[in-house]
């Protein structure tokens, strides 16, 4: 069972995000980064499948030099090798069609049974890239996976539906699954893993290697303005030291809101 995992690196969850001077994106100076949450679960699921059924886990990641850190983390956790799409031309791929096109092109000649992606990234949150890859490579697909069972002739997938409902579906291989956070429990890299990762293959791929130009990746969707959401509700902010604020809140809840 050979599994490709698409990883994306995003600003750490606790980052304080500010708008960039040009008003079109966040100010990305002084940010620290991590693997997008659902992608971390996708990687973990791939590693668990490999431990059960054998095979190889290949991670693929597009982005600037900093994403190496997440690639290395994946290798340290047990992925066998990595592909890094590293080229200024890839910076133009900023919508799901462009990103999916580049990743699909890089996977075209790989031999795999499954491709895992997170169900959506924590930054753009398109919830599309995985399926664009599936469409371009002609793979069967299932989204929002909460359990993965390889079977004779295919894979059985437990899909999450709304409001606590689930559904099993069976699809033939090769297949692409988008993985939901919480499908498993994440592992940490061990020291041994970190040492072993140093010897693993990390292949760099340029746009030209894939026969792609910046123009091919030009987005159809362009962010013309990024801004903090406007408040829709009047929130009464309660100030003061913890004890003071707590006393004021209890007072409000008892006598103004009358809910305590």
């Amino acid at each position: 069972m050979n599994i490709v995992v698409c990883l994306k690196q995003v600003p750490k969850k606790d980052s304080i995000l500010r708008i960039a001077a040009d008003g079109k994106w966040i100010d990305d100076r002084d940010l620290s980064y991590e693997m997008s949450e659902a992608d971390a679960y996708a990687l973990e699921e791939a590693l668990r499948q490999k431990e059960k059924h054998g095979g190889e886990v290949i991670v693929i990641c597009m982005g600037p030099e900093r994403v190496r850190q997440s690639i290395k983390e994946a290798l340290a956790k047990g992925a066998d090798r990595a592909i890094h799409l590293y080229d200024e031309a890839f910076d133009h791929a900023s919508d799901a069609a462009g990103i999916g096109r580049a990743l699909a092109a890089a996977l075209k000649d790989e031999k795999f049974d499954l491709v895992f992606t997170g169900l959506q990234s924590d930054d753009y949150g398109f919830a599309q890239v995985g399926l664009v890859i599936a469409e371009r490579l002609g793979l069967s697909s299932a989204t929002i996976a909460m359990e993965v069972q390889p079977e004779e002739g295919g894979v059985r997938v437990k899909r999450e539906l709304e409001s606590g409902w689930f559904q099993w579906v069976k699809i033939p291989l090769p297949a692409l699954l988008t993985i939901q956070s919480g499908i498993n429990q994440l592992r940490y890299a061990t020291l041994k893993g970190i040492m072993a990762a140093k010897k693993k293959e990390l292949r760099e791929v340029k746009a030209a290697d894939l026969g792609l130009t910046a123009d091919d990746l030009k987005p159809a969707q362009v962010i013309e303005r990024a801004y903090l959401p406007l408040k829709s509700k009047q929130t009464e902010m309660i100030e003061g030291k913890p004890a003071e604020a707590a006393a004021k809140l209890v007072e409000k809840l008892r006598f103004d809101a009358r809910v305590l």
């Binding site: 509700k233 004890a243 707590a246 305590l260």
Partner: peptide, 24 residues
């Protein structure tokens, strides 16, 4: 979450929650 809150306290929950318990 503050966009839809009626009341908000900005601060460290590890300080505020015990204080709130005491007040309640």
């Amino acid at each position: 979450i503050f966009d839809l809150a009626d009341y908000g306290i900005v601060g460290d929950l590890f300080e505020i929650v015990p204080a709130l318990t005491a007040e309640v």
